[in-house]
Each structure stands twice: as structure tokens, then as C-alpha cells.
Design a protein around this nucleic acid. Structure first.
Lengths: 155, 155
DNA sequence: TCCTCATGTAACTTACAATATTACATGAAA
DNA sequence: TTTCATGTAATATTGTAAGTTACATGAGGA
């Protein structure tokens, strides 16, 4: 099954923006992800609507972070992306009136809800700030203590 | 993303078989699920390999349960199906050397593992027997206390 | 003013995995 | 020996994420 990579992708983008002074264009972000600028804009649209980032058109335009990283959790981001489906397995509903199907779907449905709840709660316990601090620790560990302008995560 | 419905499907099949004396053909099971007999055989192959069901060819052949329902959990079934992917969201690996990507993937990876662990543990806590008892409770609740031969879950 | 840069978005194409179908082989019972 | 049923490979269909194209909008700069 094909897995939705939007969350992973947008976090990569946000961390990059946090390291960068000034706006970043969709084209730069797209190159970083080996994808298309339009895909970047589509993903970022949700974050813009929530006010987490800002986009500016024209010369020296692009995307800028406009939020406090310590106040945004991964579940906020997940929600801004439109809460894509979490589970790759699900219930069939071929015979809605069938008691057997109802039995199965109720049992599985309870398990699935519990799992989704855990996922959201775990995502809610991680802030972007925590990820950013983790990134800096990795940069130091790699010995990449140059200034950020020509930082070592060109990707 | 398209969700894998094998687990839901195979549980429906197993509960049906539990209600039925004697072998059931793939064709009957397929009609019940509004699908194709070949799909049923493919799904059931995994269960047969684990010894949970038996298949017999030719006249009055078909599928039979050959296990104690109280000793088989939903996670056993899930495993017999080949442990299909659980999560619909995942990490991208466009830039494996990138520290940003490593940071993001590590954080998400931990969450994902925890979630998968919970799912397997919850599936492991439900036996087929429990589902079967639940089904009977529903049959009684509907007032379908006729004999099982012409039971009300024709689907 | 006009040109260039950048986003905004709809429409369309591609890629891929789950499901469905076809075709034919195998083997058991009537 | 005919019929019924499974076993399985090969192929087709379908649903969805991702990628692409095309064009509109709007903000500087020459």
C-alpha cells in the first residue's frame, strides 16, 4: 500500500524554514524534497490557513514561519494537513445489515479508535521546538558548528 | 489511500463458518462478501497454511474450521494474512543523508512503532470465540432464535 | 507602464497497491 | 468419466497519493 508522506514532508519543510532567515520559495523546498513546487504549495496551504506560516508573492517572496515553535505540536500539523487517514487496514461494508459484519466491524472499530487515539496523543506530545532542538544536537554531533547560512543540511 | 480489508473480510468468513455445520464453498463465501471466489481462496490460503482451516476439493468440498476458537486471537489471523501494513502514513526517504530528515523520521518512527505495538496487542486480546459469543448475543437481541440452519445472517 | 518572480488553484497524468477476473491445472466424489 | 471444488499464475480494473501542466493573481523592480 502506498503511504501518505505529507506529515513527514511538511515537518522536513518546517524545520528547514526554522533554520533559514527570510522567506523560502516553494521551488527551493521542492528541490530539497525531490518533488514539484506545486506539491509544496498544496501541502503548505493547510498550514497557512491555520496561521502557522505566511506566504508572500512576487520578488523575494516565499514562505515564512509565523508561529512559536514551542506552541505547535505534531498533532496540530497533522490536523492542519486535513487529518489524513491513519490506518492502512479497515472495515469492509459489503453487507450493512448483516449481524456478522456488525460484530466484526464493532470489534475492529474499537481497536482502531483506540489506536488512532494513541497516535494523536503521541503526536500531541511532541512540539516543533523539540524537533528543532533535536536537530541542533545532531548538527553538533556531526561537528557541523559553522554558521547557519551555509549550514550542512542542504539536503 | 485504499484500505486493506482482508482482516475484516476473513473474520466475517470465519464467523460464518463457525455458524455452519459442514464445509462451505468459496463461491458461497464470495457471494456473501460480494466478491470473487478466487479472492476468498487467496485470503484463506494463509489460514490454511497455519492450520486454522482445512480445504477439501470436489463434491461436497469446501472450507472447514479445524481450530479451537478460544485459542485463536485476531492477531493470529492478522499474522496468517501476512501482517499487512498497518499505518497509512509513513516516512519519506528522499534524502537519507539529511539530518533534518533523520530528525523527523526518528521522531515519527518512534510514534509509529508505539502505535503498531498497541494495535497488535489489542488484536491479541480478542479471540474468535469472543466474537462468536458477541454475534450470538446480537442474534438473540434481534429475536432470531430459530435454529442455525436457516439462520438470519444470510448476508 | 511593463516585465519578472512567486504564489494559488484547477485540471490532468502517472504510479502503485488492493481488488477483481480469467484461465487452466489438480484432485475428489458421484 | 463427468462434475464439482480448490490452487494458482497471469492479467485487468480501480482507487488514491503524488506529480505535472497550465494559467490566473498579485507584488516588486527596471
Amino acid at each position: 500500500m502506498r503511504r501518505d508522506g505529507k506529515l513527514s514532508r511538511v515537518l522536513h519543510i518546517l524545520l528547514h524554514m526554522a533554520e533559514h532567515k527570510g522567506p523560502v520559495t516553494s521551488e527551493v523546498l521542492a528541490k530539497m524534497q525531490h518533488t514539484n513546487p506545486v506539491v509544496v504549495r498544496q501541502i503548505m496551504a493547510g498550514l497557512r490557513n491555520q496561521g502557522y506560516v505566511q506566504s508572500v508573492k512576487g520578488h523575494s517572496g516565499g514562505w515564512t514561519l509565523v508561529c512559536d515553535l514551542s506552541r505547535i505540536t505534531l498533532s496540530d500539523i497533522y490536523t492542519a494537513l486535513g487529518s489524513p487517514s491513519i490506518l492502512a487496514i479497515g472495515n469492509r461494508t459489503e453487507a450493512p445489515g448483516c449481524l456478522v459484519e456488525q460484530t466484526v466491524n464493532t470489534a475492529l472499530g474499537q481497536v482502531f479508535s483506540e489506536v488512532e487515539e494513541l497516535l494523536l496523543s503521541r503526536l500531541g506530545s511532541v512540539t516543533l521546538d523539540m524537533l528543532s532542538k533535536d536537530l541542533h544536537a545532531r548538527l553538533v554531533a556531526r561537528g557541523a558548528s559553522h554558521n547557519h547560512q551555509q549550514s550542512s543540511h542542504a539536503c
